[in-house]
């Protein structure tokens, strides 16, 4: 009995870390969808993406966490800020960013959240994650990408190539 309590105590730090990061992420996500200022929403999105990277570390996926920081926080957010800056006249308050009937989104989101929470809590009651704490090694990950999932990797290369060419063709002035 005491061993069980002790085993729970060891991972208190992880649970506290999870709780703090999750609270920051949820507050940031709410700010993304409710902020009146586009730049503030973009900065709140940085908070959410950084928190997601921290959660990936808790989930023993360090390579994905590093990739998340490089690709999302580094590249995608710069793209977003370019998009924000190029599509409006001046910094500061925007007109109204919401639809006329934006309030309809609230019951839809709450209904989805209710159904999903019910299914998850019903299905996974108190399944615990394994506590060995071994990070997924980059070697295992590359073996997985380049052996069984090589074909999706090729397809992804073509998707990226097409996206780059498409973005240039779309955004070019002619």
């Amino acid at each position: 009995m005491s061993a069980v309590i002790l085993a729970d105590d060891i991972y208190v730090a992880q649970n506290i870390g999870f709780g703090i990061i999750a609270a920051v992420m949820i507050i940031g996500a709410l700010k993304v969808v409710t902020s009146k200022n586009v730049v503030h929403a973009a900065l709140a999105l940085v908070l959410v993406l950084g928190g997601a990277a921290a959660q990936y570390l808790l989930l023993a996926a360090e390579f994905v966490a590093v990739t998340q920081v490089l690709v999302y926080v580094g590249a995608v957010m710069v793209l977003f800020l370019f998009g924000v800056m190029l599509t409006r006249a001046k910094l500061g308050q925007e007109g109204d960013l919401n639809n006329k009937n934006a309030i309809l989104g609230v019951p839809v989101a709450l209904l989805m959240l209710g159904v999903m929470s019910w299914v998850l809590i019903d299905g996974f009651e108190d399944t615990r994650l394994p506590q060995d704490g071994d990070q997924v090694s980059v070697q295992a990950l590359s073996d997985s990408i380049f052996k069984p999932y090589l074909l999706p990797f090729w397809a992804l290369s073509f998707v990226l190539l097409a996206a780059v060419i498409g973005a240039i063709v779309l955004a070019r002035k002619d």
Binding site: I26, V33, A102, L104, G105, L113, M116, F124, E125, T127
Partner: peptide, 21 residues
């Protein structure tokens, strides 16, 4: 369930954003 519920909450906030913005 900690992580799955966090994912569900973020998903629903994102869906609200797609509908409302």
């Amino acid at each position: 369930n900690n992580f799955l519920l966090l994912g569900a909450v973020l998903f629903c906030i994102g869906v609200y954003g797609v509908i409302a913005r």
